[in-house]
Design a protein around this nucleic acid. Structure first.
Lengths: 129, 129
DNA sequence: CCTTGTGTATTAGCGTACCAATACACGTGG
DNA sequence: CCACGTGTATTGGTACGCTAATACACAAGG
């Protein structure tokens, strides 16, 4: 469900937060849905439970998650359950900018980049299936 | 020349290193070319000079840069002056993977992503000109 | 009741990243 | 020669990110 890369430089708890935000904004995690338990996630990704808890706690402070004593973390009941396409595209923008910067510095033609991107998306689609 | 974002989570010196690697692998920085001075870069990006120096030092350890006492850092004379397209595409892969991951979690269609990418690349091209 | 499963607080420790300020060694040009 | 521009070493400090090991409060189910 999540992709955590400890060597990326980006703090793990931040990676997790961003991915939860995305899953909620796309509706893959709907209001009321339960999140993976802190210990499960920590075990699965070989990470300290407190690192996961930190992400959950911050997301609760943002109002995206709700806490129930003794039970799993839930997606909060929100006024905006699912963002429209343009809002989600806005969330994608940072990743796009980074890719464009890299492509420019590598002097790769737009067509080459587009083709590589299409390949990667097709492969991901296949792997998910 | 460089794009350093202190808030991205990725250490500044790592961002710089990666971008120097890309500019060399594309030939935009050729063997013998001088790099921006530590103090200039530090001033331009509001960063401590030692942070830039750290990046330069590590790149020298990698063999990408050469040091001349009292003079600016140079791009080393390398056996491989410029990488071919497939090698440069390989360097682009991490940025692509990250974009694909984000797109999946945002439930954005490949066509939407491709279109957003093309727009961003065209805009960058225009801004550069 | 008691076990198991939630999240969380606490304490301590460790390594990294960055900063400020200072000083040094070297090459170049006035 | 001297001033200026290279990179760099040093010292000291701050903040962050992550870990380990415990321990607690609560809910649900056997």
């Amino acid at each position: 469900m999540f992709t955590l890369n400890p060597a990326s430089g980006v703090p793990i708890y931040r990676q997790l937060m961003e991915q939860v935000r995305r899953l909620i904004s796309s509706g893959q995690l709907r209001p009321g849905a339960a999140l993976p338990s802190v210990r499960d996630l920590a075990l699965a990704h070989a990470v300290n439970p407190m690192t996961i808890s930190k992400a959950y706690g911050l997301l609760e402070a943002e109002g995206l998650l709700e806490r129930q004593r003794g039970k799993a973390m839930l997606v909060a009941a929100q006024p905006k359950p699912r963002e429209n396409r343009s809002e989600r595209l806005a969330r994608l923008q940072p990743a796009i900018e980074q890719l464009v910067t890299a492509a420019r510095q590598l002097e790769l033609a737009p067509d080459d980049v587009a083709q590589a991107l299409r390949r990667a998306m097709e492969k991901r689609e296949k792997d998910d299936a």
